[in-house]
Amino acid sequence: MQFPSLQLAGSEFWIAALLALGVAAGILALVHFANNQVKRAVIVGCAFLAGLFYFLEFFIPPDLKSEEVIVLRWNLTQTGSIIGNAAQVIAGFTFLLGIYNLVHIHGNIIRRLRGGWINSVAFFAAFLAMVVFAFWRDWQNWFDPLYPNYITPGKPEFIDPKGATFASQVADKLWAPLWVNDIVKDHKPRQDVYTLLFEGVYRNMDATMFSILAFYIVSAAYRAFRIRTREAAVLMITAVIVMLGQVPLGQFLTNWIPADGFFHGLRLEEINQFVLGQINSPVQRAIGFGIGLGGLAMALRIWLSLERGSYFEEGS
């Protein structure tokens, strides 16, 4: 079953899209009005089929030439990528759901003037600023994909390379000023509001949150390593050795031991490497095996719908 590479254009495309929507709505309605037993059967069946598909795709040896998995002329790899695209579309819709959730919560806080409502105002301001300037910047390209994405200084500010098509006329009407969409060729970075918000604000706030970690590691470490028990003492001594062995200062402390002498193993960096290689590494491996097998078992349980009590069916 090879999917034909169908190219729909104009009204055909819209009819196909509407048909697909209609079918989807029909299936949804059927599932909605079905009784629980039918629903359960549908869910279990879908989960099993979907799992089986990926199981086969993974285990069947791929075609030597294309590296794609083909069973009885059905190209599983290609189908897999179509399913992947469909999942992306669904994720797009759930994103709207997520945004609704955010707007709902923050809207409520402002409406009832709950404590900290000013933060919610900040949320809306930031959210709208990003949305407006991101869309405004790029919208000429929606109407006219050939809209130039740069201009050279000295030339007329707005040029239309393909002549005035309808689309470019629309794009012309909706034209964004340079401070919204900076397309001057030599400007690196672009000098527009979106770039300011993304590069100037968002990136730095992101980096700030990341660097807060350094401070948190300090406070967490000094609380965690209290030697109340013997095990804690071992843990603390190991931590101190590794922390010092990782940096020049620690290495400096045992630099007087000759690096090629009999006692070189006592240098801090050597002990550090021993801890990482001979103690840490087997533990990592053991945990890794456990997690791998646990994941395998969990995947089987989800695939065969055995995890029932865990999600929807408590009490039934």
Partner: peptide, 13 residues
């Protein structure tokens, strides 16, 4: 499953 995979797989084996 393995036998199915071997028979229908594309000569990789």
């Amino acid at each position: 499953a393995a036998i199915v995979g071997l028979t229908v797989g594309a000569g990789y084996w």
